[in-house]
Computed example of a mutant assay.
Amino acid sequence: MRDEFDAEWVQVLDRAKQSHSLREIHDLLNKWQHTAVMELRDPGSYQRLLEKAAQIEAASGRTTSVSIEDMRAQIQQRLQAG
């Protein structure tokens, strides 16, 4: 995680130097503050979050293996069943 933070920090600092704005620095520190708290409470949670995001991205944004068409069909069946 340290390498990831350091890489983001360098990028944000470079942009802040150009824009003369601290907004991106504030946003980055806020993100990493939440990440640090999450890791303190549940070690490994950040890595699991990244792995889940990669799975969702690989599945074209679906969080389940059920297609939207199948989901709509299930909803329609339940509505018809009363």
Rank of each mutant, 00 (worst) to 15 (best):
M1A: 12
F5R: 01
D6G: 01
D6F: 04
A7W: 00
E8T: 13
E8L: 05
W9S: 10
W9Q: 10
W9D: 09
V10M: 06
V10G: 04
Q11I: 08
Q11K: 09
V12Q: 02
V12G: 02
R15N: 14
R15Q: 15
A16L: 02
A16H: 02
K17Q: 15
K17F: 07
K17G: 14
K17P: 02
Q18C: 12
Q18M: 14
S19F: 09
S19L: 01
S19N: 10
H20N: 05
H20F: 14
H20L: 06
H20R: 07
S21H: 08
L22I: 04
L22E: 10
L22S: 09
L22Y: 07
R23L: 05
R23F: 04
R23K: 05
R23G: 04
R23P: 01
E24T: 11
E24Q: 12
I25F: 03
D27T: 10
L28S: 05
L29A: 00
N30Y: 07
N30V: 09
K31G: 01
K31Q: 06
K31H: 07
W32F: 04
W32C: 01
Q33L: 13
Q33C: 09
H34E: 15
H34K: 00
T35Q: 06
A36N: 14
M38P: 01
M38Y: 12
E39H: 05
E39V: 08
L40Y: 13
L40V: 12
R41Q: 11
R41Y: 06
D42W: 12
D42C: 15
P43D: 14
P43N: 12
G44F: 06
G44I: 01
G44W: 04
S45D: 05
S45M: 13
S45P: 01
S45Y: 01
R48T: 08
L49C: 09
L50M: 08
L50A: 03
E51I: 03
E51P: 00
K52F: 05
K52I: 08
K52S: 08
A53C: 06
Q55K: 09
Q55C: 04
I56C: 06
A58D: 05
A58C: 03
A58S: 08
A59S: 05
A59E: 15
S60C: 11
S60L: 08
G61D: 09
G61C: 04
T63N: 11
T63L: 06
T64V: 03
T64Y: 02
T64L: 06
S65A: 13
V66L: 04
V66M: 13
V66A: 11
V66R: 06
V66D: 06
S67W: 06
S67L: 11
S67H: 10
S67M: 03
I68N: 15
E69S: 13
D70H: 12
D70A: 14
M71T: 15
R72L: 15
R72I: 15
R72H: 07
R72Q: 07
A73W: 08
Q74K: 14
Q76K: 10
Q76E: 13
Q77L: 07
L79S: 07
L79F: 04
L79T: 01
Q80A: 09
Q80R: 13
A81Y: 00
A81M: 02
A81I: 00
G82C: 02
G82P: 05
